[in-house]
Amino acid sequence: MNASLRPRFPVRKPDLWLRQSDSENAIFDPATDKVHLLNATAVAIWTLCDGGTTPAEMVQAVCDLSGLPEDVAEEDVMRVLVEFGDAGILTWREFDRGDDEAEGA
């Protein structure tokens, strides 16, 4: 695959605590002592940031579930991922050879 077309994978920063209750969802970062409040959709996206799922796959799943147009779902997903990045609770992993093998499997 052309390197410029290779996807990147969002990865949750390790050692964060996710606390969910009926009324709120919070991520606590012990390294910075910061608490981040998330809505239900953001928590769902957060759980998908496992280092093996691309943003395009997240967008497609949101479309499959909600029936939203792809451009709207993409805007929503990317906005959440950018916010995670700005908050310092997300990093990105580059596509590597193991992903090639998994894709062809």
């Binding site: 239900a40 959709t41 928590v43 769902a44 996206i45 957060w46 759980t47 998908l48 799922t53 796959e57 997240m58 497609q60 799943a61 949101v62 499959d64 579930l65």
Partner: peptide, 10 residues
């Protein structure tokens, strides 16, 4: 349950 559903769809 949203995260689990999206994971399953993926």
């Amino acid at each position: 349950m949203l995260g689990a559903v999206l994971q399953r769809l993926i």
